[in-house]
Every structure is written in structure tokens, then in C-alpha cells.
Design a protein around this nucleic acid. Structure first.
Lengths: 340, 340
DNA sequence: TTGAAAGCGCTAACAC
DNA sequence: GTGTTAGCGCTTTCAA
């Protein structure tokens, strides 16, 4: 039990009465070390409380054992459970996870680019649909990277996400099965692929049910609560109201529900609402929200597994890995009021 | 513009036609380098796109430039804005921030302990009231550390938080000023100091208003939405109901409001409710929640500033740094119904 | 199966 | 004001 500065490989070697090379081998390639020697080394490690100095190791190896996870906003309710998957997978392969949040500011992104360039991370997981690094990203050498949720536009980077089209299809099919015909899609976006894919699912579902083009009601949004509210206001200025709102995500749905409630309507009696994501609030809002659950932990796990593959120089053929979201039926959907 | 492996200090030195020592000095102690030389070096850095290899630097210096932030749950709505303060302060002093989340599992804590022992972080910010490392933390050398929100019980670690007593006092004084006399405190906890301090503020306020001990209604909770609901159910099984609920935090308040609404009551007509923290949801819930705003960014900034002081071997006398929360008056409080 | 030694990229003491 | 050099702790040839 040394007490001053942390034990080094040399301390272990001295106590075990072997060379530092043997200690290193006993740790990383134990099969290349005689049983008796390995035992001595292990004892010495226990005595000293030795842990490998990751700096020195990374310097020597030319790569670190950290993965940088870049997210625009770690307050995002989706984020933390995905992180669990990411971390568990990384950890079980000897990697640590480092979280960078850019707050949607390119300036912050550049800091991380510097970080990457100084070799402090072996790979990168991106939570954003674009490389958050501005123009410099073009000239810089990026480490192996994997996107989560959305493809990374300017990178040719593989990604793991959810099958948005199929998921949206589940929602729209439910609404149609309940008898809805005039269903609005709230939250279309040209800049967010996930959102426009969900709109695709909406259109596919309507088409499959033989509902004419003219009955489609599509409003744009950016996925915030506020955008849901706003879209609702716009809708109420038209003459034909839908009987159901299929929202691009839960935040939007919450905005719509808040707006509807404020106008004195009852959900689901007067209007049905669906979301997408299954954020924690979905179970607390009144009525509880029917939505699609993102397989978050699985997404995280698979994204990290993919990155580790890349790091091992195995390049899979596919560039898009989609998992299936589950439809979670709660209380925000019912049959439309007869006559409407 | 080199293209293969990242430029090293040697590349820069060669191009600038100086020694590597001069390059290092030009970067870290520019005043010790002749203007003309510095210029050449800067040009060479620009040409090569050189960034210091943080691994090598840390190894040489014997300390890293990363600060580990350990949080039990990064999904906590308080967390991300505090992180902003932490990060900005750290970054402006050349430190990076690394986030570790323990998910309240001691096992995870141990991983971070190993991380610290391998010298990968120079210091630590703790978001939890206890060292999340189990028994081993006793024997291990911990780096300079600072707590956020709550003192760290088993460490003698200074912390930056909010003045919970004074904050709670603001809430209770408001309720009393509105005319409430029977006010319940929801969310007392023996294990969370911040919570019991808020209860202290509650008691102080009642005492100052001359409200007798017997009128105190105190229920326990763990600060979750569910705990708020639960406490409410318990209260409704008693015969004397309060006219106002002073909740230990916003989550609890939301639980109480949800429960009240579910029972058909109107807030604030039938009951007033206050929270603590000012989470984002406080503005979206209906009615909007009167609460105390944590000066989050300031807390983060100050905590990191304190840690940087420690890292510079300056040890302040105080061990507790409290900032004042602001009372944010919204719509969940009104005068009690006459006759109640 | 083990040891000696080179060297990853950097900083700082020392010499000039 | 600048260069030379030792060495941070580690992994990995190369020899034995």
C-alpha cells in the first residue's frame, strides 16, 4: 500500500521481481506469461493498487480509449437513456465515454474538433444530423464516427436510428383503425430527415386507407412544445379541422394537447393525439399520450457496437441501421365524435 | 497541410526552423520568445494545423487537463444548465469537462474511481451528496473535488449550492402573505440535506408568522413526481387538508398538481402550490408554477472556479458557498378560498 | 518465457 | 532568447 504518488508499472515490476515488460504482458496478454509469473504480478498489482496510466498507454499506442459523444443538448429527454446503451457497450470493450454538448453553437463544436485532433478520443458518436464543426471539419481528419437517430449529412457516416416510416405508419394505422379520416400531421420539416420520414409514414398510411390527397393536412414545426402550440393556432384559423393530430414527436404533441386543453377541448373525446419518442412526460400528461417508443438503450448499444467495429477496421456494407419503435397505446386516442 | 498523421511539435519546429523547445515556449510562455520567432512558429502551426497532443502533455505534466463531473443522473433537468456554467469556466482556463453518470449505481462509481486513479482527470465535480465510490474511496487518493448543490458527506469536500433555507422562506412567506395558514410541506427527507433545509425554511416561516406547531403538516418524499402524488393521497386520507402545498421541488409540485387535477380540483382556486428549482416544465404545466429559480449557470461557474482554485493549491477558508435563489411568481398561488 | 531498450510527444531544467 | 536533453509511464520489437 504505497501512499504518495500512484503506483507505476515499475513499482509492480520491482515487487513482483520481474521486468516491466512482463508486467505489461501479464496484464494485456496473460497467455504469454508463465502461470507462476502471472500470479506474482497479480499479487504485486493488488499490493500496490496499480492501475495503468491511461495517458501513457494512449500516448504509446497512438490512440486513446475514450469515445467522444457529441450532442447538441444533453438536456434532451432522449439523451440519457441512449447514453446508457452507449456506455455499457463501450465499457465492456475497455472504452470510456466522454460527453460533449455543443448547445447548437458551432463555436463549441470547434472545441471538440480540437479535442479530437489532439488525439484524446479514438472515435465519435454524433447526435446531430450535421457535423457541428463548421467548415473546418472538411479539412480535418475525423476519427471513425457513427451517427445516432439521423444520418450525418456532410460526412458519409453510418448511423443507427429508428425506422421512422414504419413507426409513423403504426400511429396512422391506429388512428385510421379507430375511424379517423381527417388527420393532421404536425411537425413536418425539411431539415430533419427523421421528421420528414415520419411524414412519409403518415402519407403512406393515408394512401393505403384510400384517403384522398386532398384530405391531408400537414403543418411544419421544429419539434418543440411551442411549435405544436403554434401549428394548432394556425389550424384553428382554417375552416376544416381534423379529428386527430398525428404529431412528429412527443414535445409537439404536448404542445398540441396544451393548446387544445387551453381552448377547452377534451382529449380524446374531441380530438385524438399521437406522439413519437415516448418521453417521460408522456405518462404524466393528462391524458397519457399514445406514442411510439424509441428503443433507446438498444440504439445506444448498437451505435457503439458499430463504432467499435469501425475502430477495429471492419467496415460493414450497410450505412443505415434501423430499429423498430413500439407503439405504446395510452389514453390520448379514441374514436372520433360521431358526426364530425 | 499535412495529410497523413497529425502534426507533432517536431513538424512545427522543422518548418519554423527552430527547436521543439522554442515551439513549446511560443505556445505556453510566448513572452519568453522573440517576436520574430513567435511569428515564424505561429505560421508553422497554421501551416501544419498542429494541435498539442494532450496525452503527451498530460503525461509529461503529471496531470490532465480534464475535469470529471460525476452526476447520478444526467437526465435531471437541473443538470444541463449547470453544466453550461461548469464548462464555460473550465474552458476559459484550459480545462475540458468530462461527464460521468453513475445512475446511482456504486459499481459505476468504481469505474470512475479507476479513471481518476489512472490520472485521466485533474479534479472532480460531484453532483451527489455522497461519494459514489463505495468503501474503496476511503483508501484511494481522490483529486481535488468540489460538490454541487449538496455537501459531500464523507469527504470534507467544499461545495457550492443554493441557500435552501432562505429560498424556502421566500416561498412560505409568499403563501402566508396571501393569507394561507394551513400549509403542507411535501417532500421532507432525512437523506437529502437540501430537502431538510427547505423544510427548515418552511418551519422558520411558520414560526415567524406565529402559526402554531400543531398546524404543521409535513410529508416525506424523494423529490420525484410520483412521490408528490403519493404524499397527496396520504393527505387526503386525513381529515384536515391544507390550503396550500409547499413542495420540496418542482417535480414533487408537479406530482401534487397532477393529483389535485385528477381529483377535479382547480389550482390555484382550491389549493395553492409552490415548487423549488424552476425546471423547464414549470412554465408548461397548467397553471404555471410559482417556484424558486436555481441560479444554475452561476452555481456551475462558481463550483468550477472553486475547483480551479483548489487545483492551483489555494485553499479557501470556507467550505460552503451559497447563492440565493429567486422567487418566480407564476399562477399556482392565490389567496385561499374564504371559509377554508 | 522473459528482459533490455527504443520511443510515443511533450515540457522544463540547464547550458549557452 | 534559444537549443539540448532527460524523462513522464507505457508497449513492443528484438534478443536471449
Amino acid at each position: 500500500m504505497t501512499n504518495s504518488s500512484p503506483a507505476t508499472i515499475e513499482d509492480v515490476a520491482r515487487i513482483a521481481e520481474v521486468s516491466i515488460a512482463t508486467v505489461s504482458r501479464a496484464i494485456h496478454t496473460p497467455e504469454k506469461v508463465a502461470n507462476s509469473t502471472r500470479l506474482k504480478v497479480n499479487q504485486a498489482i493488488a499490493i500496490t493498487g496499480y492501475t495503468t496510466n491511461a495517458m501513457a498507454r494512449s500516448l504509446r499506442l497512438g490512440r486513446s480509449n475514450m469515445i467522444l459523444v457529441v450532442a447538441p443538448d444533453i438536456g434532451d429527454p432522449n439523451f440519457s437513456s441512449i447514453l446508457v446503451g452507449l456506455e455499457n457497450e463501450a465499457r465492456s470493450h475497455g472504452y470510456g465515454v466522454l460527453i460533449g454538448h455543443t448547445q447548437n453553437e458551432p463555436q463549441r463544436g470547434l472545441e471538440y474538433l480540437k479535442f479530437l485532433n489532439s488525439n484524446q478520443a479514438a472515435g465519435m458518436i454524433l447526435f446531430t444530423g450535421i457535423l457541428p464543426f463548421g467548415h473546418q471539419s472538411m479539412t480535418a481528419r475525423l476519427p471513425p464516427s457513427v451517427g445516432v437517430f439521423e444520418p450525418v449529412f456532410n460526412g458519409g457516416i453510418p448511423y443507427v436510428g429508428v425506422d421512422d416510416v414504419a413507426g409513423a405508419r403504426k400511429a396512422i394505422d391506429l388512428l385510421i383503425a379507430e375511424g379517423h379520416r381527417r388527420i393532421a400531421f404536425i411537425g413536418d420539416s425539411r431539415t430533419r430527415l427523421a421528421f420528414s420520414r415520419r411524414r412519409e409514414g403518415y402519407e403512406e398510411g393515408l394512401a393505403a386507407a384510400g384517403i384522398p390527397q386532398s384530405a391531408r393536412i400537414i403543418l411544419e414545426g421544429d419539434g418543440t412544445i411551442e411549435s405544436g402550440r403554434l401549428a394548432l393556432e394556425q389550424l384553428f384559423m382554417r375552416d376544416t379541422l381534423p379529428t386527430a393530430f398525428m404529431c412528429v414527436n412527443d414535445q409537439t404533441a404536448i404542445g398540441v394537447m396544451l393548446g387544445l386543453t387551453a381552448r377547452g377541448y377534451d382529449i380524446p373525446r374531441d380530438f385524438s393525439v399521437t406522439g413519437f419518442d415516448d418521453v417521460p412526460q408522456a405518462t404524466f400528461i393528462n391524458p397519457t399520450l399514445t406514442t411510439l417508443r424509441q428503443p433507446r438503450t438498444a440504439i445506444g448499444r448498437q451505435a457503439m457496437a458499430l463504432l467499435l467495429q469501425l475502430l477495429a477496421n471492419e467496415h460493414p456494407d450497410e450505412t443505415e441501421f434501423l430499429l423498430m419503435p413500439d407503439l405504446i397505446v395510452r389514453n390520448s386516442v379514441s374514436r372520433p365524435r360521431s358526426g364530425k
